[in-house]
Computed example of a mutant assay.
Amino acid sequence: MLDALTSATGVAALLLAAWCGWAAYRDQPTKDWHFIGMAVVTLLTLVQLVVGIVQLARGEEPEQGTVIFVAYLLGAFACVPAAGFMSLAERTRWGSVTVAASGVVLAVLEVRLYDIWKG
């Protein structure tokens, strides 16, 4: 898997978490700009999902198993959009907290994806 893409996705997720965490600290819900940030992070995870599937199709194998690797790829892809939909339902500061938490979770998933691929 591409180390640069994994690192970029993890950093973008942490930046999104800090940004939404700052909004929650200021008692603000998620706004349109936050959703643009979520879209950027989701696009990075989509690219990562496609790259991971292409590498598996080319015969490359993750060190810790294909099934767990694909499960983590799908979880990473779904993490931020799910939190975005939840933040639409909760139009208070807690919506921002939800997105901030998803950014931290995504960063941890990226570290785990790197471990699964490299062993």
Rank of each mutant, 00 (worst) to 15 (best):
A107H: 03
Q28K: 15
T9M: 05
R91I: 00
V41H: 07
A57K: 14
A12K: 09
L109W: 08
D115L: 15
G52E: 04
Q48A: 08
W117Y: 13
E60M: 11
C20E: 13
L109R: 04
Q48T: 09
W19N: 05
A8K: 12
Q64L: 14
L5Y: 05
L15N: 15
V50Y: 03
L56A: 10
V51R: 12
W117F: 09
A76I: 01
R93F: 07
A76L: 05
V47E: 04
L2S: 14
A4K: 12
G21E: 06
V67T: 15
Y72F: 15
G37T: 07
I53Y: 06
L73I: 02
V70P: 01
L113M: 09
A13D: 06
L113T: 08
K118D: 07
Y25H: 06
L46C: 09
L46T: 14
A8C: 01
A101E: 05
R112E: 12
L109G: 11
G37D: 05
V104R: 01
P29E: 05
A4E: 15
Y114K: 13
L88D: 02
T45Y: 08
P29G: 06
Q55D: 06
F85G: 13
V54D: 14
S87L: 00
A100K: 07
A107N: 02
S96C: 03
F85P: 02
G84L: 04
L16Q: 04
V41N: 07
T66G: 02
Q28N: 13
G119P: 02
I116M: 03
V51S: 12
A101Q: 10
G21L: 01
S87K: 01
V40M: 03
G65M: 05
S7L: 07
V97L: 14
E63F: 12
Q64G: 02
A18G: 11
I68M: 09
G65L: 10
F85M: 13
D32Y: 07
T9R: 04
Y72K: 09
A17V: 00
D115H: 10
M1R: 11
G103V: 11
V47A: 10
T45G: 09
C79W: 00
G75I: 06
V50W: 03
P62G: 02
T92W: 02
F85S: 09
F35D: 10
T30F: 01
T45C: 11
L14T: 08
L44M: 14
I36L: 14
P62F: 14
G95I: 03
A71F: 05
G52P: 04
L74P: 00
G10S: 10
K118W: 06
M38N: 10
